[in-house]
Nucleic acid binder design. Structure first.
Lengths: 211, 211
DNA sequence: CTTTTTTTGGTGTCATCGCTCCATAAATCC
DNA sequence: GGATTTATGGAGCGATGACACCAAAAAAAG
């Protein structure tokens, strides 16, 4: 048998960090969320994180790497409404209706920047940021693929007609969510976004097949 | 009678400019369109315009002023499809269907950057660019107001029910167009965008009142 | 011609960008 | 205690950002 790992959390070796990495990451995420990558300076970052440049580079590889991590953290933590709503019960149409409503709510929280961190990020940027841009394109495509999979599932369950264009519908809903993200950034209130979502969801209602 | 103005275009006084201001503005517009304001550097600009810093500041007040002019030029020249489609004959539903299809085409031209210069611009940016951001918010709100006016007109013409929610529908179509702008920036082809537009337009079809 | 007017090319400026270096501080290990 | 290890504070780096300055060039006006 291999020796058991220490269960009591032994303190690590050297000088203890003066800040919590996860907290700092959250603070950076919020700033990136609000200002985007190019709109957020290094000094802005270490300012809001409350650390020095040395501490920053001791915990993060670069501004770009931090942004990547921030996007991942956002997708995992703040983007839960997306997958959760799509996995909810009640059929495809209801799931998408729920998801769009959840988007409206998530995009207009008072304790976070408005809109979606991913939806409108790096659509226009310098060629120097092409890696980041591609990463965000992949994120958006990923979300679209999840939606498409849910629609395909709806067809399989007989909730949508056999000839339903799942790819087209997924692209449509993806566009609507991204558009809601723009509206939110422009100051649209929750009700306005919910109305947009409701109208968008009605497209599925029309082609949903009643049992 | 006041003395007539010279009709023959007398050459102006000093050294003739070595470049055409409108052409340079177009070149700058295209670069801004592709990279956004923060993603476009001063050197990038004078590079694509083919002029020196001196010539630049002799014709334009600042990078910010140039961007403002570029947005105006875009709205006036490249954004004609928008107003033209909405003014077309055949009723509201047809007008919006035409407009969304025109958007799909305009967003995927081969001789211009993909997407819309206004739709996705300055949604995330540094506080230093708040003037530009507000200007773009106004542009987007202006487009939404034009759509709403067309919908109100549709109600007046009896093409839509009296209780149609024109503001809500305008917000919805605005979101769809902006979302199509994101999709286009992410590389979506013309057909995909046209499909999105078609699905979006079907919302009006449903609430359109047949005479 | 000279004067006046406007544009141009080239160089310089000053702030900010993201990032690095190093001596020191604060902890554990022996 | 000393050695080792890790984190911190602070100064500073080269590159790039937008922009300013000025003498020279190229035209019309007198």
């Amino acid at each position: 048998m291999t020796p058991k790992k220490e269960c009591a959390p032994r303190r690590p070796r050297g000088r203890p960090p003066s800040f919590d990495r996860e907290t700092a990451l959250s603070q950076a995420m919020t700033l990136f969320w609000d200002r985007g990558y190019e709109g957020t300076s290094f000094d802005d970052l270490i300012g809001v994180m409350g650390i020095s440049a040395s501490s920053f580079y001791n915990s993060f590889a670069s501004k770009e790497a931090l942004y990547m991590e921030a996007i991942e953290a956002y997708a995992r933590r703040e983007g839960a409404w997306f997958t959760q709503a799509l996995e909810s019960d009640g059929g495809v149409a209801a799931a998408f209706r729920t998801m769009l409503d959840a988007a409206a709510i998530a995009f207009t929280r008072r304790d976070a920047p408005s809109g979606c961190m991913i939806a409108v990020a790096a659509t226009q940027c310098s060629p120097a940021q092409s890696r980041l841009r591609q990463m965000l394109i992949d994120q958006r495509h990923g979300a679209e693929a999840i939606m498409q999979a849910r629609l395909v599932d709806g067809v399989r369950m007989g909730e949508l007609p056999e000839d339903a264009d799942c790819a087209g519908l997924a692209a449509y809903f993806s566009a609507v969510i991204n558009g809601m993200g723009v509206q939110a950034r422009d100051g649209a209130c929750r009700e306005k976004l919910q109305h947009i979502g409701s109208l968008a969801a009605s497209v599925l209602q029309g082609s949903a097949r009643s049992k």
